[in-house]
């Protein structure tokens, strides 16, 4: 986020930043521009926390936006344009981590935990005897209930 950019700016040197996507950067061809935006949304601004280069106002994000637009105009496919960036900056720039053995735990644990939790809850409920239907209150209980209700008012 912006606070991270700002603080990082004090540590590493960054060119003072402008806003995110600027008018001058945008491609005239709306289809290409839409593709560029979609790619940019997938790439992390390296110096920010979880902000995409499309949304970041960091200078490097600006450069990468322009670069991606240049690549697309030059005829790159989306995958080629993304690879151009990951070749230089690694998988770290992908906001969506690739699904690979190292990330199986990451990707599958949410659903595994839900399944285990649901199974555990089911077993817990079932393990105990089924509930007998409510029996009508006997006279004593009814009196007690009435007394309590009265006390309440």
């Amino acid at each position: 986020m912006i606070r991270a950019v700002v603080v990082a700016a004090l540590l590493l040197g960054f060119v003072p930043a402008a806003l995110a996507v600027e008018p001058g950067e945008m491609l005239a061809n709306p289809q290409l521009e839409a593709r560029a935006e979609a790619i940019g949304k997938q790439l992390r601004c390296l110096v920010c926390q979880n902000e995409s280069i499309e949304d970041s106002n960091a200078d490097l994000a600006h450069d990468l936006r322009v670069l991606i637009r240049n690549r697309l105009t030059a005829g790159d496919t989306d995958a080629q344009a993304i690879k151009f960036v990951t070749d230089r900056y690694g998988d770290f720039v992908l906001l969506k981590p690739p699904v690979e053995p190292a990330t199986y735990v990451l990707w599958f644990s949410p659903f595994a935990i839900l399944t285990i939790g649901a199974l555990g809850a089911w077993l817990y409920i079932r393990h105990r005897r089924p509930v007998p239907p409510d029996e009508p209150l006997d006279l004593n209980q009814r009196r007690k209930l009435e007394r309590l209700l009265l006390e309440d008012q």
Partner: peptide
């Protein structure tokens, strides 16, 4: 010692 990853909104 694994790879550096980002986990962002798409995840």
């Amino acid at each position: 010692g694994g790879p550096k990853l980002s986990v962002g909104y798409p995840f």
